[in-house]
Design a protein around this nucleic acid. Sequence first.
DNA 1: TGAGTAAGTTACTCGCGGTAGGTTACTGAC
DNA 2: GTCAGTAACCTACCGCGAGTAACTTACTCA
Lengths: 208, 208
Amino acid sequence: MKAATPGADPEPPRRRRMSRAERERQMMDIAEQVFTERGYRGTSMDEIAERCGVSKPMLYEYFGSKDGLLLACMGRAKAELYEVTQKAMAGASTPDDILWRGMVAYFSFIDSHSRPFAMLLQEPLSGPPKTAEAIEETRRQQSELIAGVLRTFAPDAPATAVAAYTQIIVGACERLALWRAGHPELTVEDAARHMTDFCRHGLAPYLK
Amino acid sequence: MKAATPGADPEPPRRRRMSRAERERQMMDIAEQVFTERGYRGTSMDEIAERCGVSKPMLYEYFGSKDGLLLACMGRAKAELYEVTQKAMAGASTPDDILWRGMVAYFSFIDSHSRPFAMLLQEPLSGPPKTAEAIEETRRQQSELIAGVLRTFAPDAPATAVAAYTQIIVGACERLALWRAGHPELTVEDAARHMTDFCRHGLAPYLK
DNA sequence: TGAGTAAGTTACTCGCGGTAGGTTACTGAC
DNA sequence: GTCAGTAACCTACCGCGAGTAACTTACTCA
């Protein structure tokens, strides 16, 4: 049965067969969107399946579980973030410039992916097995980048200080990015400027 | 029926009736522990009820829902954290000392409550309605404290810088505290020192 | 043109959050 | 004492959503 009411075919692009790769991408796009709208817990696999125009077992066929689907979405975002920040920093020359470009790239990325990313950073609790782990992995990836900059920036700093400062900067960026969500008056450049200023001199410039 | 096997009474303290207040406290203690062990999702209300020596509807009677129970646990932790940091800072005189004592109190608190707190900070995603909100509320409370210090510390800093720096510091503390969980060699004092150093001078001391 | 396979489906099970409605035991008034 | 009132507590159930088994449809290529 191709059409119940002959003559009227309201959705010709839907319900078409897709290759696995194509379907997987579509599923991840939709899942990201639904997770963002409803939060992890509020999202049901049935709804994602329905929006994909496909039945639930297909999701399980391709992603194994709800967690697996979330993990796949996160993996994609992680790769994108890494690529964006990495490339931004590669185009710089001085350490100052590296830091600045990295920060701008980071805040811009969060800005354009704000919804999904806010979820990723805020929702590790879904309590799934590996989700928090995956986010930690993303952080580690970004930490490597930052630690590298620090070693260039401050070659004489002891390793433990570099490690601690790396965590401090990662946490600071994350929080500031999340905070910006509720404070649109703070532009990407403002955020980046505050971060770089603070990294370089701390509160010193404001002390009497 | 008081005892199935006469003469043997293996658990006299269990199964006794308790007042509502007493029972609530016990439930929260146990819930905190089980949430910590299994994570939010991995925890079932049946298990908490069983460990309390009580049946599930009692939990619902007192806390309304699983989220409600978590929220109650979080509320308690939040109040404790505030009290501890608040008091520590009240005993100081110079701004430097305020910052130092606040940090030491914060890292010590996380240290002694590390398990439950790691969960609180990492698991906001359970996607419940208000859990993430409650954590945000805790952060706001701590932010007030920090912003106050900053205004004393650096009275000439513009308000937007103070606001941004507050977020930066909150995020940095959080991340460093979480990171410490996997790096026991970093003592509370080390962490506090790195934080206060970074806050005051940033990377400047290490630049050539 | 039909064997093989990849895409897709229906129709279930099961665990867990949540609830309706009833029972047990403590308290205080007469 | 004893009995009304209430607070603590229980058994037995519901529904929803994650996950699965077993089957069907449609493309592809020798």
